[in-house]
């Protein structure tokens, strides 16, 4: 282990036992993320199989608006960046900065979920409900599951903010914040797959 590496490991884990604990928890959380990725993969497979089955209902080309999707993509990508800044502030033990970046992250997340909900309600108002066709069932299941994950992630950020305010940046709090960051960045990866598999081919 080089000088730089050992100093980085002491930034967030103050002794050997804590480091081991951190790694074990990170691995456990990583296994959860991988199983979540498999759930999403199956929803993607279902969507691709169903995407042509519009049952005389509206198609993706009629329903999707690319500028809207671009807006959602940009909000989620920015929120990944701001969560990264929160992680950096946490490593530098700057409590108020962490809170500030987490608030920005939540604001961007709320913007994303609001855009998604307005898209869904617009589709439903236009008669494109999940029960209309296999395509719409698969679409709402896949994109809705991702939106639910983002909402749970924002709840997690709120809880982390509470822990930072009451407990401070103790090693267990830092370790949880780190895993929540993994979750948040993971959701952005799932979104890449959503716009590349659902929205872009949908309007082609």
């Amino acid at each position: 282990m080089s000088q730089a590496e050992s100093s980085a490991s002491t930034v967030l884990a103050s002794d050997h036992e804590e480091t081991l604990d951190f790694e074990a928890r990170e691995f456990g959380f990583w296994l959860y993320l991988m199983s979540d990725a498999i759930i999403f993969a199956l929803l993607f497979a279902t969507y691709v199989v169903m995407s042509q089955n519009i049952a005389a209902g509206p198609s993706g080309k009629m329903l999707f608006s690319l500028p809207h999707t671009m807006g959602e993509t940009f909000l989620l990508l920015c929120s990944s960046l701001t969560f990264g800044f929160a992680t950096l502030a946490a490593m530098a033990r700057q409590n108020s900065r962490v809170i500030l970046w987490l608030i920005v992250t939540i604001a961007l997340g709320i913007g994303f979920v609001a855009m998604e909900l307005s898209e869904f309600s617009g589709m439903i108002a236009a008669g494109a409900t999940p029960q209309v066709s296999g395509f719409l069932s698969a679409f709402f299941t896949l994109v809705g599951t991702h939106g639910l994950h983002v909402s749970f992630g924002m709840f997690g950020i709120l809880v982390m903010m509470g822990q930072i305010l009451t407990k401070g940046l103790t090693p267990p709090v830092l370790s949880r914040l780190y895993r929540l960051g993994l979750f948040w960045h993971f959701l952005d990866i799932v979104w890449i797959a959503i716009f590349s598999v659902v929205y872009l081919p949908g309007v082609l």
Binding site: M1, A4, E5, S7, A8, S9, V11, L12, A13, T19, F22, E23, E26, L66, T69, M70, T73, F74, L77, C78, S80, L81, G84, F85, T87, L88, M91, L174, S175, Y178, I192, F195, S196, L200
Partner: peptide, 29 residues
Amino acid sequence: MQTLRHAPTHRTYLTGFVLALILTAIPFG
């Protein structure tokens, strides 16, 4: 923190952000 052995910096995240923006702009464009 063992997982941050390569302690990330603002530059790490900004590099990723800019690359992601470009890789999003290409297919949308």
